[in-house]
Write a protein that binds this DNA or RNA. Sequence first.
DNA 1: TATGAATGAGTATTCATTCAT
DNA 2: AATGAATGAATACTCATTCAT
Lengths: 218, 218, 218, 218
Amino acid sequence: MTVTATPRAERIRSNSADRRTRAREDTKRAILEAATALFEQRGYEGFSLRQVAEGIGYTATTIYLYFKDKDELLLAVCAEGFAEFGSALEAAANNTTDPALRIRAIGRAYINFGLTHPVHYRVMFMQTPDFILSAVNQPREEISSYQVFMDAITAAMRAGVIPVADPLETTNLLWANVHGLVSLSLSSKGVVPKWDEESVRRMFEVQHDLLERGWRRV
Amino acid sequence: MTVTATPRAERIRSNSADRRTRAREDTKRAILEAATALFEQRGYEGFSLRQVAEGIGYTATTIYLYFKDKDELLLAVCAEGFAEFGSALEAAANNTTDPALRIRAIGRAYINFGLTHPVHYRVMFMQTPDFILSAVNQPREEISSYQVFMDAITAAMRAGVIPVADPLETTNLLWANVHGLVSLSLSSKGVVPKWDEESVRRMFEVQHDLLERGWRRV
Amino acid sequence: MTVTATPRAERIRSNSADRRTRAREDTKRAILEAATALFEQRGYEGFSLRQVAEGIGYTATTIYLYFKDKDELLLAVCAEGFAEFGSALEAAANNTTDPALRIRAIGRAYINFGLTHPVHYRVMFMQTPDFILSAVNQPREEISSYQVFMDAITAAMRAGVIPVADPLETTNLLWANVHGLVSLSLSSKGVVPKWDEESVRRMFEVQHDLLERGWRRV
Amino acid sequence: MTVTATPRAERIRSNSADRRTRAREDTKRAILEAATALFEQRGYEGFSLRQVAEGIGYTATTIYLYFKDKDELLLAVCAEGFAEFGSALEAAANNTTDPALRIRAIGRAYINFGLTHPVHYRVMFMQTPDFILSAVNQPREEISSYQVFMDAITAAMRAGVIPVADPLETTNLLWANVHGLVSLSLSSKGVVPKWDEESVRRMFEVQHDLLERGWRRV
DNA sequence: TATGAATGAGTATTCATTCAT
DNA sequence: AATGAATGAATACTCATTCAT
């Protein structure tokens, strides 16, 4: 089979297919973004397909061409967030081999993700567990990021950097620390002073310094 | 208190007015309680005037005689939450004079409120500030509890129990710590292990121990 | 307690209540009739609350004030038909003591009901059994009329007027005979000749004569 | 059949046209069969173009290339039903020359068709005539089966097997008898006892026996 | 010939709200 | 003070149909 110029018809078909695929993905992306925004604004129950559709100038019906139903759309929104979140945490973890530094780096990445993806963060971590639970058959990316966190902690325990304790509970505790900063900043920015992005980053360092100091020779 | 010669008609009118006022307040209270119960049970979106009314044997229409609309009723429910929250924090603060202990006590009270009033907590601290802000005329009880927190902290700084730093930021940090535990527990209970009530209380003590140790070695 | 003139207020209240009750029943009746007509025209699946409502100038929502849901409305339609049908059959049965005549009388009443209540008849006997079955908890009036039929038949068997055979099957057979005439007339009037009301009544007599003659010569 | 000198181009065109026509008819047939199957399975209202299309691996849109709209497809399905029904009756009629037996055979064929094609039967004989009548352009196969019935009856009258009477009315009566059995079985199976297929066939024989006995020496 | 995208009308049902009484 | 009737807007979802390709 020689490399002939692709026949015209073929080329056209292929281009046309390409274009269609691209258009399809664009639309899907538009829906996803509108959905994310609305979900963040209104929460699970306040969320409506109609409004998503209106937001991007489509009919509600159209959404069904891209997502099976409401839940599938919402799950797609979450999945996206979890994927990116997991990557960010892993990248941070792989950036250093020092166990103490690694934990701080993960924390920083966490804070950073929350501050730069407020909408996704809200969707992922500030909703009733019902919704997430309903997606129980889906592969849980969420868990993967939790694992990154916990691995770093057990490593630090083995290295004697932090006192040995129940790893699950320690992970939860650290997670809660950063989650507290991020989520409170999302809910309080503009209402309570000193919840701007810069303050939050600074507060994280203070919080983590205190932690490390507390861990030392418990 | 002598029986002054109030004219009979006047007395009747007044009594009747009293009775009416009392009856009115009773009904209002009944509605409020039913609303709170439903609210705690079904959450913000699952909440419906019809069901509130049914719960106390009135027509949905009747509620409009006591509250302008759904939002006003919901705001009243929230206001009650803030009031109770503020009282709980104040009570905890007044229970001891030791500055360090007082901070811990406030934290405990905070955790306790969150765990026992999950739905209220959600609405009060885990939503876009829009809804709360829309209650512009309401006195901001929220601020008052913030004040309790901050007062305890500045006192502790003066007493040398915790290192001197920006009081606002320190308050935010402590708030974030407890908020992290409460809110993450609300979102993760049943999904991630060790987020049951007991674990959260235990984790709070650990968290606070670490903090105190960290403060001591600054 | 003397017969005083009823106090004015009382009278007004009572009248007003009466009027309301009457209005309510009128509306309910209107809905029922519109529903019956539509059900007959379009069958179970083609039937829609919206159209019923439009037909009588109400909003679809209004129907929910009178009937819990679609099924309750449809069941009411059927119940009505079955009640009247049962009465008609019983009346006919009680009109004579002669066993043979009684059977013929019941048949005539059956035919008469079908011809004069075509709409109800369609709803009651020409739909998928699914719907009727779904009403399984409802007291089954239908059965009562079936019973009238069967009682007359067993009596006739005991009297030696018709040959002894399985009563259920004999009932089914007689029922099928009259049902065939009625239902075919409903589906064929205007399409096939000789399916007008008068012909049907005449055909019933012929059919029954043949039956009796057949029975006699078994 | 000699190979005449059709020009090559012409031959190609013609073959190609043939092939296209054949392909077209194959597809049409496939659609029709899928439609019939779905129709038999889900009934008139449960029937959806989307599902028909899916069943044969085409898009819903494709169906519009073969049938103008949903109704046209449904009418085609019905037409097939009428055709098959007519054939079945004719076949039964031609199977014997004995006038009495022929009538019974036609009846049996009728019962058989109804029991084995319940959904078709429903649409053909248990609906308001509107839908069928709307198929004005369709040749009325229905009539042809009616004719088969009536021919057998007039023949039987001439042969003295059944008493002479108005042929139309006699046909209607016989039709009603079998229709009663079939249609009541369709509506009552599972609700009323003894309406299973076997009972119906048995009841038909009983019914017909009685008829013949009634006819003898009226 | 076949398809993918899109739409508009339709379905049952729920809810907040208004109005006359 | 309380209610019953009624409405209009909203919800998720399905379907027949059209159009450009």
